[in-house]
Every structure is written in C-alpha cells, then in structure tokens.
Design a protein around this nucleic acid. Structure first.
Lengths: 218, 218
DNA sequence: AAAAAATTTTACCGTATGGTCAAATTTACA
DNA sequence: TGTAAATTTGACCATACGGTAAAATTTTTT
C-alpha cells in the first residue's frame, strides 16, 4: 500500500508504524536529551533548532530528519514527562495510613524535583504560557485529581485527618516541591554559597514533613 | 557640553537626566503596561517588539524612541516589580504576634498573586531562565531574607512557634502563593468550570491559614 | 559484492525579528 | 506666530530562524 512520498520510502521521520532502526532509536534519544536541556533552560520560543542540534552534536537537517518540527520534539518530551510526573499521585492508596500516604507523596514529588529539574522546568514553562500544547493531557490530570481528592475526603470523613480542601492541598504540594526545581536560581542565592550541595532537599523534606504532619493532624 | 549625537538633541530616549516631558511619561507608561501583558504571556524571548507596539497602539520605531531595546523595557518592568514584590516581607514585624504576622504575610502574598498575576508570571519567567537579568537584585533579596529569618529564629527561641527552618518556611510561602498566579492555567482546569471566579483565592486563603497555623503551632 | 534502504550533508528559501535612519509632523515655548 | 525641540512615521537592513530539496554517503539486506 504505497502512500504519499513524504511518509514512505525515503522519509522515516516520525515513523510511527514502521519498525524503528537502531540508529533511529539512538538518535531520537540523543535529540530528546539535548532538547530537554535546551527547552528547560530557554523555554520553547527561546530555544532554536540549531541550539538543540548543536547540543546533540548533529546537523540541523539531520535533526529534522527525525523530528519534522520543533513542536514535534516538544510534544514528545511533554508526553513522556507527564507519565513520570503523575506517577506519585497515582499510587496514593486509599487503604494506607493517611498521614504517611501524604508524607510519601510529598517525598516522592520532592525527589522528582531533585532528580528531574529539567522536566519540572519544561512543565513550568508550558503552564506559564497558558498550557497551549497540553490542554487534553490537563484534563486527564483533572480526573486523576478528582479521584484522589475523593480519597482525601474519605479520610476527612473518617476523622483521620483535619478537614481541608483536598484540591488546594494538592496545589500546595505541587507548588512547594516543584518550586525547588523551578526557582532553583533564586533558592541558591538566598541559601548562599553554603547551600551549594543537595542538602537543601533534605532540609526541605524535614520542613515539609513537619508542616504537613502538624497541619493535617485530625 | 555637547555629547555624541545619539544622546543629545534629537534622541531623548531613556533620558535619565533630562526633564521628562508629559508625552514621555504617558507613552512610557503605555508601553510598560503593554509590555507587561505581552512578556507575562509569552516570556522574554517569546515576545516581539512588534507585539508590544501593537498592544500599546503605537508603531515599532516610536516604541524604540522611548526604549532603546527590548531588554530596556524588560529591565524596567523587573525593577518596578521587585519593589511591590518584596513589600509584604519588609513589613514583617519582630514585635508582632508571630502567628498573625505570618498569617498576614501569607494573605498579602496571596493578594499579590490575585491582583498582579502578570507581575508574578514575569518574575517566574525570569527565575526559570536562571535569573540572567537580576542577579544583583537577588542579592538584595538574600539580605532581606537573612534579616527576616533572624526574626523567625527569635520567635522559635522564645517558644512562640514550632522549631523550623525559616528560609524553607519562606520558600514554601512564596511557592504556594505565586503558584496561584503562575500555574493559573492548570488550576483552572483542575478546579473545573465551577472555579471560574476568584473564589479559589478565598479557598486557598482558608486552606493555607489552617495549614500554617497548625503547622507552626509551638 | 551489489542493490536497496536509511542516514547525513550542502546549499538554499521565505519569513520574522531587532533595530536604524532620515524625513515628516507635532508640540512647547519665547 | 515663529522657531526649536520633541515626536512620529515609512522605508529599510542584517541577521536569525524554521524548514526544504536533492545530492552524497553510510548502513543494512540479499
């Protein structure tokens, strides 16, 4: 079944159906890694294809052989990101101990901020611009939050944690944890040269543990 | 004392020394207002001079008559912003009641997020990109935080609030309050169509009051 | 090794963008 | 009102940028 020239014979770029070559896998990975770096530092509009290509160590047309457009790279990065990003929330367990479930959630989110700061900034950039590329994905998030908020409400009804607005609870956890990745430049200055290491994440974990454990005690 | 042509006779743009004309004041204000809108929506690199000029209702060369470069507009916006931004922190009073001082601080920061979301996003964009334009100003912030952190430590020593890391306390407050401006796109989706009004700020205020009052009780 | 497929490079194109220049127009002031 | 200063405009420029076309090269398959 021959199709239009652009998606057969010569051009396997973004070949969704076709079996992927070894080189294809390697190069796509290389490009995505470079793009994540550049996008996280300069935002979507602030990043150029040339920049990404240079960072990946390949030529611009070669990059465009694997991804048709700059948007395509960005979209793939965002898609991957969201899986990682929502994982901690998905595993919140209604049958677990409420306080330690929330503690775990905070700790996991903080680990993400520490270990994947570029992903956090990529996401922050996207939302700051009004989330133009991920309206649909955001609606998946909405359903997930709805489901987990129901769990929290259950805990409140059972008197296991203090009454509070579950959604704003989530907002606060997202905000604080991601803040350590997104506002890193500010945090480093405020903490001073002594705060160069990753110790700030441990300090943050201690602080947040206390804040939320006391703040949510039933 | 005649100087080079560019900064005398014809070109009063960015006339720091010269007495400012009525038209100069009006137009500069107009441009800054338009630029704030555009920068907040698209970030620095994502905004074009043409966009700003159009939003201001003037021509591009006319805009460049008042501000030599795009950077100059941005810099002036950031400078103005920081004053407003740090005000709530400056008025934290060592002699006030600790809990209500912190409550007030949170409330004020939340009001800023509600009333000046564009400024919040402008700032967020700048920090996300690594704060390239405001390293000096950030050091002023550092000193201010140092000073206020000392006040918090005093309250802790006196047993008026629970022991905690003062700087991380501030980080958490900044993060959460600004989150309501910066991640507005996400919050709207999660809260759903019912959350269209500004009621979310009242809900947020209630939630945060509870979280911090309980969380910091000595 | 030859043929086919996949990959890479060189040269290039149209548009967007930051910014300039000199002329035209408006405003302020004596 | 006349004149100098201030303001505005239209035409323009160099560069950056996203992306394309086709030839050249490498890799895979037979």
């Amino acid at each position: 079944m021959p199709a239009s020239k652009s998606d057969t014979s010569v051009a396997p770029r973004s070949a969704a159906t076709r079996k992927r070559t070894r080189i294809q896998q390697e190069k796509e990975e290389l490009i995505l890694e470079a793009a994540l770096d550049v996008f996280a530092r300069h935002g979507f509009r602030g990043s150029t294809i040339d920049q990404i290509a240079e960072q990946a160590g390949i030529s611009k047309p070669n990059l465009l052989y694997y991804f048709r457009t700059k948007e395509a790279i960005h979209r793939m990065l965002i898609d991957r990101l969201l899986d990682t990003w929502l994982e901690p929330m998905k595993i919140i367990d209604a049958d677990g101990d409420p306080i330690s479930e929330i503690q775990s959630y905070i700790r996991r989110k903080l680990e993400l901020a520490r270990d994947y700061p570029r992903e956090s900034r990529l996401f922050a950039n996207e939302i700051l611009q009004g989330a133009p590329h991920i309206q649909e994905e955001l609606h998946d998030l909405r359903e997930l939050v709805e489901e987990k908020a129901e769990i929290i409400r259950g805990w409140i009804t059972q008197g296991k944690i203090a009454p509070c607005d579950p959604k704003h609870l989530f907002f606060s956890i997202w905000a604080i944890t991601q803040h350590y990745a997104d506002f890193d430049a500010q945090i480093r200055v405020v903490l001073g040269t002594t705060g160069e290491g990753e110790g700030r994440f441990e300090d943050a974990a201690r602080f947040l543990d206390q804040l939320y454990v006391n703040g949510l005690k039933g």
